[in-house]
Design a protein around this nucleic acid. Structure first.
Length: 486
RNA sequence: GCCCCUAUAGUCUAGCGGCCUAGGACGCCACCCUUUCAAGGUGGAGAUCGCGGGUUCGAAUCCCGCUGGGGGCACCA
């Protein structure tokens, strides 16, 4: 049977990493099997819709390279792929269940429902609807109490017995049906609940495997009963372990960055994020952990999905990102860096923009292995571009030397620079090593002082590469400025 | 309160009855390389495999209980 899987986000907020990990696993499974990846928008909660969030979700998918075969902007045979455009379908199906005696209208008010819930909890009973409207008398009474309200449609659950659902990751999970209540299928505003819309659409869209987060496992028995009520075959269920924050609760906004778009904006590479996310709840073997997207497509199988939740460890993401940055060639990294440097808000000062691409290409080899995130570039590379350096002059004085000795050293360094006609890395190194010897200074002291003078910082790429890239003119004037500031 | 899932180092994980004196990775520490910072290399600390019972000649691996952690219990998804 052809694999047809779906990612079914609801446009109620940012595309957070837990959600997108579900999208990734579905996508990987579809691509691994040559199946179909569908994006379906579950916008059935009118109250919680967040404008712009649909675009944000689709942007996140595009950014990560998770393309869909059917869904928004990719029409297929089972559309529309937006649930708010399928309302008639859900209404018909709900009406069918009512006509068959498998569902019923309920007129109870939220206030009453709330009271029932509280009373049950206090009585140490499972919370849930008391089924008043399931009997004609109860419904009649409820209708009299609320003559103006529209009813909801509730599903008639069996009142006893157990139901076993088969989760591909966990095996058989058994629930006591008597503990489950008659859940709502159709809301009073005419929109379906998740349970109804999901079951109908998964069937109509011929979904073969439902891969979703573990938080859905408790509603699986309801879904199974719904499939049976409609006479539909149930897709295979694959529940993914949750992604947790450092405090071990479900990862959310309050843990800091949770939206995939935030990670993009912090300068993480999509492939690094994908690699990292793939390893949260899935692994291949003892040692493999470096996976390109193609590798993942080749190796991903649901058999290797774990059952236990995973804590989101941003330090490992940082490591992955550094690894992927180091894996980029000069041209690719320069291209990736340019927009960050040219960004009016977080990039280089206006006077340094736009960056010269050729110049940037010469800088890239020096900074590649120092960058963890692209967003660090403006701060890290600024001294290559700014005219005036702003730093604490006391940094110029090396350990073990005083101001006067430093001055003498920098004057000699300036003279050497001034007199140099070969500005290559090798020539510079030869000249300055000779100078250190001539001055009786340790190389660390001399080079350190020059480094601060020329970069404004104590930590920078190798000195002679830096000088060479910076060019003679800039170095000479910075050495002069340093002497003036001392 | 009721239900469900889960349990190997701080974190991600390998392990599916003997190959485990428990392997890999991030992080941490040390050393090497070295003009600084990184990167890289080498080494190290860190897990009584949550605890207690079984089953078995033999258990991290199977079973049960407990405990911890998480999730669910809406006219939200």
């Amino acid at each position: 049977m052809a694999v047809r899987v779906r990612y079914a986000p609801s446009p109620t907020g940012d595309p957070h990493v837990g959600n997108i990990r579900s999208a990734l696993f579905n996508w990987l499974y579809a691509r691994h099997t040559g199946g179909t990846f569908i994006v379906r928008i579950e916008d059935t909660d009118q109250a919680r819709l967040v404008p712009g969030s649909l675009d944000a979700i689709l942007d996140a998918l595009r950014w990560l390279g998770l393309d869909w075969d059917e869904g928004p902007g990719a029409d297929g045979p089972h559309g529309p792929y937006v649930q708010s455009e399928r309302l008639d379908i859900y209404k018909e199906h709900a009406a069918r269940l009512v006509a068959e005696g498998k569902a019923y209208e309920c007129y109870c008010t939220p206030a009453r429902l709330d009271a029932v819930r509280k009373a049950r909890q206090q009585a140490h009973q499972p919370t849930g609807y008391d089924r008043r409207c399931r009997e004609p008398e109860g419904a009649e009474q409820a209708r009299k109490e609320n003559p103006d309200s529209n009813p909801v449609v509730r599903f008639k659950m069996p009142t006893e017995g157990v139901i076993t659902v088969d989760d591909f990751v966990r095996g058989e999970v058994t629930f006591d049906v008597s503990l489950l209540d008659d859940f709502v299928l159709l809301k009073s505003d005419g929109y379906p609940t998740y349970h109804l819309a999901n079951v109908i659409d998964d069937h109509l869209m011929e979904i073969s495997d439902v891969m979703r987060a573990e938080e859905w496992l408790p509603s699986a028995p309801r879904h199974k009963l719904l499939y049976e009520a409609f006479g539909y075959e149930m897709p295979r269920l694959i529940h993914l372990p949750l992604i947790l924050g450092p405090d071990r609760s479900k990862l959310s906004k309050r843990h800091g960055a949770a939206s995939v778009l935030e990670f993009r904006d912090m300068g993480y590479l999509p492939d690094a994020l994908v690699n990292f996310l793939a390893l949260l709840g899935w692994s291949l073997d003892e040692t493999s952990e470096l996976f390109s997207k193609d590798d993942l497509v080749e190796h991903f199988t649901p058999e290797r999905i774990l059952a236990n939740p995973a804590v989101f460890n941003i330090e490992k993401l940082d490591w992955f990102n550094g690894l992927y940055i180091r894996g980029m060639d000069d041209a690719a990294l320069a291209d990736a860096l340019a927009p960050w440097l040219d960004d009016p808000e977080h990039g280089l000062p206006a006077s340094a923009r736009p960056v010269d691409h050729d110049y940037l290409s010469t800088i890239v080899p020096l900074e590649r292995e120092r960058l963890k995130r692209l967003a660090e570039a403006p701060e890290m590379l600024s001294f290559f571009f700014e005219e005036r350096l702003d730093y604490d002059p006391s940094l110029l004085v090396p350990k073990g030397l005083d101001t006067e000795a430093t001055r003498a050293m920098l004057e000699a360094a300036l003279a050497t620079a001034d007199g140099a006609d070969d500005w290559s890395v090798a020539a510079l190194e030869t000249a300055y090593r000779a100078l250190a010897e001539q001055l009786g200074a340790r190389t660390g002291q001399l080079f350190g002082a020059i480094r601060v003078a020329v970069t404004g910082r104590t930590a920078a790429p190798p000195l002679f590469d830096t000088l060479s890239v910076l060019g003679k003119e800039r170095c000479v004037s910075r050495l002069r400025a340093a002497l003036a500031a001392l």
